[in-house]
Design a protein around this nucleic acid. Sequence first.
DNA 1: TCTGGGGTCCTAGGACCC
DNA 2: TCTGGGGTCCTAGGACCC
Length: 402
Amino acid sequence: MIKLSKIYFHIDVNNAFLSWEAVKRLKEGEQIDLRTIPSAVAGDPKNRTGIILAKSKPAKDMGVKTGEPIFAAMKKCPNLLCVPPNHSYYEAESKKLRKLLEDFSDEIEPYSIDECFISYIPLLGSVMDVANSIKDRIFNELGFTVNIGISDTKYLAKVASDFEKPNKIHTLYTSEIKEKFWPLPIENMFLLGGKTAPKLKAIGIDTVGKLANTDINILKVHLKSQGEDLYNYAWGKDIDERHQRKETPKSVGHSKTSSYDLTNLEEIYSFILDVVQDTCNRLRKENMKANTITISLKTSNFKVYSSSATLDFPTNGTSEIYKDCKNIFNKMYKGEPLRLIGVSLSNLELDETTQLNLFENFSEKEHKLDKTVDNILNKFGNNHLITRGSLIHSDKNSKNNI
DNA sequence: TCTGGGGTCCTAGGACCC
DNA sequence: TCTGGGGTCCTAGGACCC
């Protein structure tokens, strides 16, 4: 009996944020399709965090790059139309896509907001017929195009969906790697990034094929376990469990860039509380508690450093976590002007205990306060009007204290 | 004209215990 | 008293992804 190997499709929305924005605007009666003019989804240009999140093909052709500041993009492309992002709308579109894919597969593994892996069901038709149906239905029902990569491994399916775009289907079976994968520059490899490529080039490896035909021990010397992984990928081995998404998050974090450099300690504390509030809100939404708190700082000259501490008892209470954050911060802070502050909660576990732990200094009142703040945040988002004066001891914020 | 935000995993050194 | 080695946890930093 012949053992049929499993086949995976990697579905990748073309220019996701921009496509979704374009479709939304057309539906709302706008005449211009953002995809046909130089346009971009970008942050607030007045803010120093205003960068390009997604761009149209015409914008790309004029040199606009994802991640660059808006003013830099405008210099290359003065008629660039920038629209603000709308994350909750993109989240909804992503859900619609996954819902549609349920008609084609019983195994859907979301990889990111605009990508997922699905397994192919032979009963539905030939590989190409099914892929074409998926592509057509997404376009007809949801209005945007996707690339589909097909292979017997997820890794290669992911590489294949990145071939010529947009609106294309490509295969890259393990049996095809020598002709379709090995001639490519190493930059085309998934999980090989901008730091690793120069290291490989320095030892004369510039194509996937050269990587595949290098002694694995040499790769290990230069890149440790990553070298072994990349060697295996070059030969068509699949991504292991390590790189697969789990249902429960391993960490929940939040960070914010200030509109100006922070130097005043009271302001920094208030900023930390703001970030902690958002992070704890999300942690409680996940119904989890954290054992470890990490604070990261980015200074005005872009130096990044972090410090963390593991607690005696897990918690998701805002005031507790805020107090710990303040302690960690006070120990690590060297007084530089700060550009960004981040708080990440990790070492998570399910919050099953509703009864209070005697050792936890956590009152019923605090619980209620957290709930109230969560409700407001969930309803209105964090518009910076909510702060807890009692925690900050600052007069500046007293007007809007709860 | 400087460079977002949210994640995951890996590495290396130190502490601690047996 | 001195010495060694293995296992595990913690912490800081870095690479990579979208």
